[in-house]
Amino acid sequence: MVTGPGQVEIADVPEPTAGPRDILVRPRACGVCGSDGFYISIGGIPPRQGATILGHEAAGEVVEVGAEVEGVSVGDHVVVNPMAEPTGIIGNGGASGALAELLVLHDAVAGKSFAVVPKDLPWEVAALNEPMAVARHAVNRANPKAGDKVVVFGAGPIGLGAAIGFKSLGASHVVVVDVVASRLERALAIGADAVINSAEEDVRERLLELHGETGGGYHGTKPGTDIYLDAAGVPSVIDTVLANAKHGATLSIPAVHKKPVEVDFGALLTSEITIVMAMGYPTEIFEVTEDIIANQDKYAKIISHPVPFEDVLEGIKLASTPGAADKVVITMG
């Protein structure tokens, strides 16, 4: 629980109970999101500043099912949609959070509040469902077609999830760009066709080699990349994409840019580039679940630091320290 600016503690709260339309879940794994560090820095989210329970990337075991709830049984393993909770977004200022021993899903509906997953799916992999839905929404916003050539900037969890998503939807070649060698190694491990270290290599020249040349005339010669995805959130990525995008290319931006980015629309006119923003997961929260189940070995490689709940405070600190960890998932027995 966030108890004040920069303060997070393990606290005792009343044990939740489930009504006839609810289910009670025992969280078994919960990812730590970058937003959690932000909530800690500001002392929690109104109206629960000083008492914000963390955790929204949850997978758990059902321990009680209300009499009116269908499609789930005690003992089932589920992934959770934090946005569907009527008492407020789970772990994002709502009345509950998943970094807890018990979690109630009120007015629980299968396919809306939760989805049942196979019992052999590792808890920590199942807990990737929520952030991978964010990645899948960014992929969907790019409207990929079979055979597309794709570049993903940023090999953090969202970028890697997007890379897997593009491959699952039929992309012929996916390149991941980053400046950290270990992240690029992980990108290759999850199935990227190639990687580029932009601190050491010329991105344009490498893309011309990997995706061929296209254009000519007033478009100029450009790499044959169809889709770019910005999961890095730095201005240099936007500059690189807009300078090299071929006619009709698409740029999807799920990254949070903390500073304004200057764009010369006059220079972009002839490219007819499509730029789309991507936030959250309007429809993807359980769309991505089947892909995680089918490609669980790839998704498992996204997790850099599984941390047991007894070390949860250290895990949160680790996740909030820039460059210290790529993806922290807290495991609860």
Rank of each mutant, 00 (worst) to 15 (best):
S198C: 11
K222G: 06
D239V: 03
S168E: 15
D226N: 07
P254Y: 03
G217K: 14
N197W: 12
S172T: 13
K222R: 14
E185K: 12
E200Y: 09
A243C: 08
Y218M: 09
G170N: 12
E205M: 08
D239W: 08
D226V: 14
V256Y: 13
D193A: 04
T214K: 01
H173F: 15
T214H: 10
I238N: 08
I164R: 15
K246F: 10
S168A: 15
K259F: 05
A249I: 08
L184E: 01
V176D: 02
L210I: 14
R183W: 05
K246D: 13
V195G: 14
Y228M: 07
E213C: 04
A243M: 10
S252D: 02
L207E: 05
T221K: 03
G248A: 03
P260L: 00
D178T: 05
H257V: 09
G191E: 03
I190Q: 05
A255T: 01
R206N: 15
A199Q: 09
L210V: 07
V261E: 00
F265G: 15
E209K: 09
T240N: 12
Y228E: 07
F265S: 08
V175F: 05
L169D: 11
H219P: 00
P223L: 07
R183Q: 10
L242P: 01
A163H: 06
A199L: 14
L207R: 06
T240E: 11
A189G: 07
P260W: 05
E262P: 02
I227D: 09
A187Y: 02
G224Q: 04
A171W: 13
G224V: 08
S198K: 06
T214S: 11
